[in-house]
Design a protein around this nucleic acid. Structure first.
Ligand SMILES: [Mn+2]
Ligand SMILES: [Mn+2]
Ligand SMILES: [Zn+2]
Ligand SMILES: [Zn+2]
Lengths: 137, 137
DNA sequence: TATTGACTTGGACATTGTCCATTGTAGGAT
DNA sequence: ATCCTACAATGGACAATGTCCAAGTCAATA
C-alpha cells in the first residue's frame, strides 16, 4: 500500500527497501501471515532480507497501530494489515484459512455488568470456527 | 476433583500418582494454568514428575474433552478444567488474570449468513479485555 | 506375586521469538 | 554531488514453549 508507506514517512520512518517490501507483502484483503510467511514472501523479492528485520518491522507496525497481531491457535502469531476497520475472524478448523468478518451489534454490550468482576472492559475479540467450503466435502 | 478421576477410571485410564496430582492441580474455579505452571505446582507434591508427563496428560485430557485449551496471547497455551459449562474469558490487559464469564445471548447468532463465506460455522470464542480492579489505580 | 501393556522419564530436537554487537545506508547538511 | 551520522539491517547466539523417542517402571488384573 502506498498510503501505508506515506503514513510511515510522515511518522519519520526511513523508507528502506526492506520496509517497502514488507508493506507490499502485507497489502491485500484477508491477509494474515505469520512472521516467517512474511519473511518467505519478502525473500522472493529481496533475497538478503533477514528474519530479525521482519520481526522488528512487524513489531513496530503493531506498536503504532498500523498492523494487528492475531493469536489464533497458540502457534505463530499472525499479522493483519486491516487495522483501521474493526472486525473479527472466521477460521477454518481444518485448513486454517482466515476471513475477516463483521458480526452485527456490539459484542462488548453482551457482557452484563454482574459478569464483569469490577473490570473496566474495553476490548473484545471474537473468533468463529467452522469448515470452509472446500473443507466440507 | 474426585469426579474427574472417577470419569478417567471409567474410561480405562490407569490412575497413576502423576495423573492424580495433575487432576488436583487443575481443580477449582477460574483456573487457567500453562503447562509449565501445572508442572511447577505438581512438582511441589511429586518432585520427580516430568515435563513430558504433564504435556502428555494435558494433551490427552484435551483430546477427550475433559480440559479446554485456551490460547490467550500467543505465548504458552493455558489449560481450563471448566470444560463442561460453555463460557468465555475476561482477561486483564495488565496482569493477565483470567476470569470465566457468561455473556448473554448466543454469540454464534450474531454472524449474519452473508458474512459466513459458505463456512459451516460451529463454534465461537469470545475474549474480553480490560483492567481488573487491582490494576486500575 | 507374577505378568504385561500402558505409563513415565530424561534428553534430544523443533519451532517461534528475542537480543545484541557489528555493519550498512537514507536522507539531511554542505 | 558528496559527506555525515543517527537510524536501520544483519547474522547468530540465546530463550521459551512444545514434540518425540528409546528405555525403564508400575497399576491392574488374574
Ligand atoms: Mn483480519
Ligand atoms: Mn475458562
Ligand atoms: Zn478449510
Ligand atoms: Zn490486573
Amino acid at each position: 500500500m502506498t498510503d501505508l508507506l506515506e503514513r510511515l514517512r510522515e511518522r519519520g520512518w526511513r523508507l528502506t527497501a526492506q520496509r517497502r517490501i514488507i508493506a507490499e507483502v502485507l497489502s491485500g484483503d484477508h491477509v494474515h501471515y505469520t512472521a516467517d510467511e512474511v519473511h518467505a514472501h519478502a525473500v522472493e523479492r529481496l533475497p538478503e532480507i533477514s528474519r530479525a528485520t521482519v520481526y522488528n518491522t512487524l513489531g513496530e507496525l503493531v506498536s503504532i497501530g498500523e498492523v494487528l497481531e492475531v493469536s489464533t491457535d497458540g502457534r505463530a502469531k499472525r499479522y493483519d494489515p486491516n487495522a483501521h476497520r474493526p472486525h473479527q475472524h472466521l477460521i477454518c478448523s481444518r485448513c486454517g484459512t482466515i476471513r475477516d468478518v463483521q458480526p452485527r451489534g456490539n459484542p462488548l454490550a453482551d457482557l452484563p455488568d454482574d459478569e464483569r468482576f469490577g473490570f473496566a472492559v474495553s476490548q473484545v475479540e471474537v473468533t468463529y470456527r467452522g469448515l470452509c467450503p472446500s473443507c466440507r466435502g
